[in-house]
Design a binder for these strands. Structure first.
Length: 356
DNA sequence: TACGGAATCA
DNA sequence: TGATTCCGTA
């Protein structure tokens, strides 16, 4: 599908739920799952709408419920989605069918009893796509999403509260801009393939594909490979044990030379053909209220590292087998053979695809 | 309103 | 693979 679509500037609305500093990983655009196609996925589109203040009248986060959102105007959301996908016949019935497919994937679930209300399972979104992160890059806590060590499954038990992970994801509210970029990974169902998605793939001029971005100033990012984060002091190898802020201070928004200007939000009527080359840097959504503040509380030894019984997990903190991977909790492999470097271009993360 | 099967498409 | 479309059922 090709659309001559577009992005528009992000709402620079103070106090809005917009949280930048968050990047969607490549798998959000099914680069690996659908070779040759990098169309936006519905759940991501939903996130995009949610992060935009101007769409809060049609869809918005449910106050007090992390990851839960309400479609206030189903028809309008469907219309927007149809517009994005150049499917003028789209309606809520069809859109909701697509949403229901996310139930099985546990990306989303329905909030029973609440009309047009769904809830994201952020831990699934992030973790299930990265079941065996093996990072060949130094742990870089200042690169929240570029710090796979923080998100390797071993550190993110499936029982980890979604809202906590959610909080971790939206780092900007900590008050610091963080170079963004979430490592790519294969779809959870793709076990083989041998592809090794890497951090640092370049963004194309159209980051989400013209069709795929609502846009924001933060969207004006070059590829990670082209982005050199500010130099930061090397961390001690046992930084994960340290207490203190979850993220070291990082200078605010870096200028990104050559970054494309945001485009209009949606494709024109003709939906002209466009080649999509998004490689993983659109911004991840907004979030529920208070998450940013919660993030402040995160330390380098987050509470969830302490194994707690979880309804979804066994008493030992293991997830049910259907979660597909071990939840063994151990610290990040620091040190390894890779010299620490604050430069993203040195942060080539390679992880195997999902286990069978 | 919500769910999910089935066929189909790109 | 991720929808899209249609439809029967609850």
């Amino acid at each position: 599908m090709h659309c001559g679509c577009v992005a528009e500037g992000a709402p620079a609305v103070p106090g809005s739920s917009w949280i930048s500093g968050m990047a969607f990983p490549d798998w959000a655009y099914k680069a690996e799952s659908s070779p040759g196609s990098r169309q936006i996925q519905l759940w991501h589109f939903i996130l995009e709408l949610l992060q935009k203040e101007e769409f809060h009248h049609v869809i918005a986060w449910q106050q007090g419920e992390y990851g839960e959102f309400v479609i206030k105007d189903p028809d309008e959301v469907a219309r927007l989605w149809g517009r994005r996908k150049c499917k003028p016949q789209m309606n809520y019935d069809k859109l909701s069918r697509a949403l229901r497919y996310y139930y099985n994937k546990r990306i989303l679930h329905k909030t029973k009893g609440k009309r047009f209300t769904y809830k994201f399972n952020f831990s699934k979104l992030i973790v299930i796509h990265h079941p065996l992160w093996e990072v060949r890059a130094p742990p870089s806590p200042h690169l929240l999403l570029g710090a796979p060590a923080l998100f390797r499954p071993a550190l993110v038990p499936m029982g980890m509260p979604s809202e906590l992970l959610h909080s971790m994801l939206f780092a900007r509210r900590v008050g610091q801009e963080t170079p963004r970029g979430l490592p790519e990974a294969a779809e959870d169902k793709k076990g083989s393939g041998g592809s090794a998605p890497r951090l640092g793939s370049l963004l194309a001029p159209c980051q989400l594909g013209p069709c795929c971005l609502l846009g924001s100033p933060q969207d004006e990012l070059p590829g990670l490979a082209a982005f050199t984060p500010p130099l930061l002091p090397a961390l001690p190898s046992d930084w994960t044990r340290l207490s203190g802020p979850f993220l070291p201070p990082v200078p605010l928004e870096q200028p990104f030379p050559g970054a494309p200007k945001p485009d209009p939000l949606f494709p024109g009527p003709g939906c002209p053909p466009v080649t999509h080359h998004f490689s993983g840097l659109p911004l991840l959504a907004g979030l529920g209220p208070g998450a940013g503040e919660r993030l402040r509380l995160l330390s380098l030894r987050p509470q969830w590292l302490e194994v707690k019984p979880d309804p979804l997990m066994g008493a030992k903190g293991h997830p049910s087998p259907r979660d597909g991977f071990s939840s063994d909790i151990h610290g990040p492999k620091t040190g390894d053979k890779h010299p620490a470097s604050p430069h993203l271009e040195n942060c080539r993360a390679v992880w195997p695809l999902d286990p069978p």
